[in-house]
């Protein structure tokens, strides 16, 4: 199928090469968004320089003395530097791998459901967590996990005769809890997102496969998954670019900022927040952002380069 599209494309390409003018409407259509991106994203980039300057409000904020990397130092002075980098990267990798497998698995099964009415209900139901803010999730989490009144300790472990667990002081459970909540919160949206792709796959392919005697597994492996590949690759590239970022609510509010859990919950964002909470220094917080951006940028370039090598049409640029 792809081969035929490509052939058509190259045929079209030759014809259009002469017609430069025909692109003008396309550029015009892109213009509103590009103007917005310029204003919203590019113009403020000028301000990134304050990460390298002393904070000085006496004149323009962009005229403080250059201190180069002084504002970055606080990120690297403690032993936490290692821990927070490890946590940020590992959790993100975990989210990419588990999240992708889980959401593809659920979406495929979801699309096998024959009752459309129930399917609609499920779809709405699993989207609910997507609407609840992380702060509220943290309160709900506390209702489940609190030592004294927690639902899990009182209504599940106690009747089973298991000793209550002090959830907020036991780091070993938290990687699972964080992964669970992350998946729980995002499942409705990823289901929607992948379903969008699955429903556009023409039924003809499946019909033809059935006639050829293909099993359901074969249909999934040879039709559905190849169709989903581009979007999965794309989402992975984009996630890798954000591997130094973390959902602040998930790592700060959900564990109730419990000190006993820091070894498994500190990420670059939460560390920076805790360190700057009292100082409120905008040059240092900008420095954190610059550090995350540059690492993310390098990673996305590398991933994109690798993707280009293996499958050109799936790369970003």
């Amino acid at each position: 199928m792809r081969a035929t599209t490509d052939m058509k494309l190259s045929g079209v390409r030759k014809k259009n090469k002469i017609k430069w003018k025909s692109y003008i409407p396309l550029y015009l259509m892109a213009l509103p968004a590009l103007i917005y991106v310029f204003i919203n994203n590019y113009m403020p980039l000028y301000g990134m320089q304050i990460a390298f300057r002393e904070l000085d409000f006496s004149g323009s904020i962009f005229s403080g003395k250059f201190v180069w990397f002084d504002n970055f130092k606080f990120l690297f002075t403690t032993k936490d530097a290692m821990i927070m980098t490890r946590n940020t990267v590992l959790y993100n990798l975990l989210f990419i791998v588990v999240g992708t497998i889980f959401s593809v698995f659920v979406a495929i099964l979801f699309n096998e459901i024959l009752s459309k009415r129930l399917a609609k209900f499920y779809q709405s139901a699993v989207l609910i967590p997507f609407f609840i803010s992380m702060v509220v999730v943290s309160y709900l989490g506390f209702a489940f996990l609190s030592s004294e009144n927690g639902f899990i300790n009182n209504s599940i472990l106690k009747p089973l005769g298991i000793d209550p667990v002090s959830w907020y002081t036991e780091p070993k459970y938290w990687p699972y809890i964080i992964l669970f909540v992350h998946t729980w919160k995002g499942m409705g949206y990823s289901l929607l997102f992948i379903t969008v792709r699955i429903i556009t796959i023409s039924k003809d392919y499946y019909e033809a496969a059935k006639i050829d005697g293909a099993t359901k597994w074969q249909q999934i492996f040879y039709i559905t998954l190849p169709f989903l590949k581009p979007v999965i690759v794309l989402m992975t590239i984009l996630s890798i670019g954000r591997i130094f970022y973390s959902d602040f609510g998930l790592f700060y509010q959900l564990p109730m900022s419990s000190g006993a859990l820091y070894d498994v919950t500190t990420t670059i964002d939460t560390y920076s927040f805790r360190a700057l909470m009292n100082l409120g220094d905008i040059t240092m917080s900008t420095a954190t952002g610059v550090y995350q951006s540059i690492v993310g940028f390098v990673l996305i370039l590398v991933t994109n380069y690798v993707t280009r090598k293996f499958s050109k049409e799936d790369s970003l640029f």
Binding site: N41, M48, I61, R242, I282, G289, S293
Partner: peptide, 18 residues
């Protein structure tokens, strides 16, 4: 240029100024 904006941002202060 578009992808670039996903990673780099000038921060709240300079957005506010703009």
């Amino acid at each position: 240029l578009l992808t670039f904006t996903m990673l780099f941002n000038g921060g709240l202060t300079s957005s506010y100024i703009v």
